[in-house]
Write a protein that binds this DNA or RNA. Structure first.
Ligand SMILES: [Mn+2]
Ligand SMILES: [Mn+2]
Ligand SMILES: [Zn+2]
Ligand SMILES: [Zn+2]
Lengths: 145, 145
DNA sequence: AAACCAATGCAATAAAGTTGCACCTAACTA
DNA sequence: TAGTTAGGTGCAACTTTATTGCATTGGTTT
């Protein structure tokens, strides 16, 4: 149980919290495990509806904390609500760590396209990049038939 | 006046409305000219604050109509509000027509990087792309000094 | 045990987006 | 031309999402 392998990481959840210098708390454990089970980018509303015994603001602040500690990254897919997904091992949330996402306009799922890294682009003079939000949208494989 | 060259187009605004099969109305004219003057992606709130004699919902519906008629495209830059920018001549709002954007986290301006087209990526089997929202963020040339 | 501090739940609020409806206006019809 | 119609606009209400204040809880430190 304690040594179970979690998500994208070769570490247990407990180890990850230690590495990211974050106290392990009931809400954090539940939210982390929930994200880990789904392996997709999920909205606060979606998480809240499943973890209904937790308060929305607690989940919200937990996600914010996860973002601050680079345990999850956010995706703005145009659906109207922010999606959250677990980072991969070694992710520092720099553009070079990030990847494209795919938003299905039918089932509204948002996927991390882990094997599609953000390309390094040459920006106009004076522009300095620190973040990236790459979203393709259309039909996912489940909805395309 | 009537023959003035507007924005990205080699056509007058009146011509564009005809091409896009859209009636020319007072609000549409003002919103179009406003977007055209700024050559940037702007939020509803921002437009509203300048065109203060127009109603928010009228501007909102006008922008929606412009999007439907492919006169403007939307950008979700993570700022919390949708940005709108004029399309270029010949734009059909397909991914191949679209380009990267840059959101400055300091001045909150969103730029169309017209010379950075969306690359064609190979998606997993079964995924069909229809839209793209590419946003880099950081410091713009004005704020970087 | 007392003090402390972060986490949590609850409730209120802010911010953005959206809609119903009445009125207006300009184009069309008779 | 007068009447009719359809779409555009303004106003106000409302929905959804995001965010914050504050009191309470619960574990850790002194
Ligand atoms: Mn991702
Ligand atoms: Mn653009
Ligand atoms: Zn789908
Ligand atoms: Zn700037």
């Amino acid at each position: 149980m304690e040594k179970q392998i979690y998500g994208f990481y070769n570490y247990s959840m407990t180890d990850i919290f230690k590495i990211k210098e974050l106290a392990s708390t009931p809400v954090r454990v539940l939210v982390y495990e929930y994200l880990n089970e789904h392996q997709k980018a999920l909205s606060l509303k979606y998480i809240e509806s499943d973890l209904y015994d937790l308060d929305r603001s607690s989940i919200f602040r937990t996600l914010k904390t996860f973002v601050d500690h680079k345990i999850v990254h956010t995706i703005h897919d145009g659906s109207g609500s922010v999606k959250y997904a677990l980072c991969q091992e070694g992710c520092n949330c720099d553009p070079s760590d990030l990847h494209f996402h795919f938003y299905c306009t039918t089932c509204e799922a948002t996927y991390c396209l882990l094997d599609l890294p953000v390309p390094s682009v040459s920006l106009p003079t004076g522009f300095v990049i620190s973040q990236a939000n790459m979203v393709l949208s259309g039909l996912c494989n489940n909805c395309n038939s």
